[in-house]
C-alpha cells in the first residue's frame, strides 16, 4: 500500500497537511487552480483563510514560491515581484496574486485597480467564498443578497445582507483586463482550461472562483461540489469568459433549477424559507438569477 501510494499519488502543488476545514471548497479549488498554473510561478497571497490554512509556521503547504504580506496588498506585492523579475532579466515565470472576496472586492480593490491599470503580466485569482470566513463569517461586498452572516444577521427587522454582489467581472473589464473568467468546482476541466489560458495571457488576467464554504454557508462537508453545480444551474453563478472585454463563451445551463433549490441547501438562506416575507425575497433572488440568464444567454 505504501509503495503504491508513493507510485500513484499525484504530486500536487498544494500539499496535504494544510488546516482547511474538512470539505473546504476553497482548498479544493485552490489546489485545482495551482495545479493548472504549474510549478513555474510565484504566488503572492492575501491574508485570509487560504493564507492561514496553508502557512502556519514552521510548515507550508505550498510547493511553489509563495509570499504573504498583508490583507489588502497581494496585487501590489505581485506587481513588485513581476517588476523585480523584469529588472533581473528573469523570463517565463508567471506571477500570480490571490485573495479572498474581501481581499479582492473590498479592502484590496485599490491595489488591484493600480495593478490592472499599470498592465502587469499577472494572473489575479479571487477565491470568493462570499464573506469574511477567516474572521468568523462577516459580510463582504461579495455576500449574496439576503444571506445571513454575523454582521448581516437575519432577525425580526432584517432578512440579512441588503446589498447585491459587487460586479468584479465588470470592474475587471473596465480596467481592460485582457482575460477575465469565472470558474466553478462543478467543472474542473473548464477551470483547468481557463486557468491555463489566463497563465498564457501576456498582461493582466482575472479568474473569479466561487468557493463553497461548508462552515460559512452552512452545509455538510461532502456537499461543496453539488452546491457549486446548483449555483450554476440556477443562474446565480454564471460561468463566463471574456477576452479583451468581449464575452467569448458561457457555460449553458443544462436544466434550469429554481433558486429555492439552491437556497434551501444552506443555512445562511434558511430564514428565507420560513415566512411570507422570506418568500418575497426568494422571488427577488429569482429575478437576479433570471437577469443573469438573460444577460449572458445561459439557457
Amino acid at each position: 500500500m505504501e509503495d503504491l501510494k508513493q507510485k500513484l499519488m499525484k504530486k500536487h502543488l498544494l500539499a496535504p497537511g494544510h488546516t482547511a476545514c474538512a470539505g473546504c471548497g476553497e482548498a479544493l479549488g485552490m489546489r485545482l487552480i495551482v495545479d493548472a498554473i504549474g510549478p513555474n510561478c510565484i504566488i503572492a497571497n492575501a491574508t485570509g483563510c487560504s493564507e492561514i490554512f496553508t502557512s502556519k509556521y514552521p510548515q507550508s503547504a505550498w510547493e511553489v514560491p509563495w509570499v504573504h504580506s498583508l490583507f489588502e496588498n497581494s496585487s501590489a506585492i505581485a506587481s513588485g515581484v513581476e517588476v523585480a523579475l523584469k529588472a533581473r532579466g528573469k523570463t517565463g515565470i508567471k506571477v500570480v496574486a490571490m485573495g479572498g472576496d474581501g481581499a479582492t472586492a473590498d479592502i484590496g480593490i485599490g491595489c488591484i485597480s493600480g495593478m490592472w491599470e499599470r498592465g502587469h503580466n499577472i494572473l489575479y485569482v479571487c477565491l470568493d467564498n462570499e464573506a469574511y470566513m477567516n474572521t468568523g463569517i462577516q459580510r463582504s461586498s461579495q455576500t449574496p443578497f439576503n444571506a445571513s452572516t454575523t454582521t448581516s444577521p437575519s432577525g425580526s427587522e432584517s432578512m440579512g445582507n441588503q446589498t447585491l454582489k459587487k460586479d468584479m467581472i465588470a470592474i475587471a473589464n473596465a480596467h481592460r483586463v485582457k482575460y477575465v473568467a469565472t470558474v466553478s468546482l462543478a467543472n474542473p476541466k473548464d477551470l483547468e482550461r481557463k486557468v491555463k489560458k489566463a497563465v498564457e495571457t501576456v498582461g493582466p488576467s482575472y479568474i473569479h472562483f466561487q468557493a463553497p464554504c461548508p462552515l460559512g454557508w452552512g452545509f455538510d462537508s461532502d456537499k461543496a461540489v453539488e452546491i457549486a453545480k446548483l449555483a450554476i444551474n440556477t443562474g446565480l453563478f454564471p460561468v463566463i469568459e471574456y477576452e479583451d472585454g468581449q464575452l467569448v463563451k458561457v457555460q449553458k445551463i443544462a436544466k434550469k433549477v429554481p433558486v429555492e433549490d439552491y437556497l434551501k441547501t444552506q443555512s445562511r438562506f434558511r430564514h428565507l424559507l420560513k415566512s411570507d416575507a422570506g418568500k418575497k425575497v426568494i422571488a427577488q433572488i429569482q429575478t437576479i438569477a433570471d437577469a443573469n440568464i438573460e444577460k449572458f444567454g445561459l439557457v
Partner: peptide, 12 residues
C-alpha cells in the same frame, strides 16, 4: 510600499 516589498521578495 507594497510594490517595493514585493520587489525585494522577488530579489531586487
Amino acid at each position: 510600499a507594497s510594490v517595493v516589498l514585493g520587489a525585494l521578495a522577488g530579489g531586487s
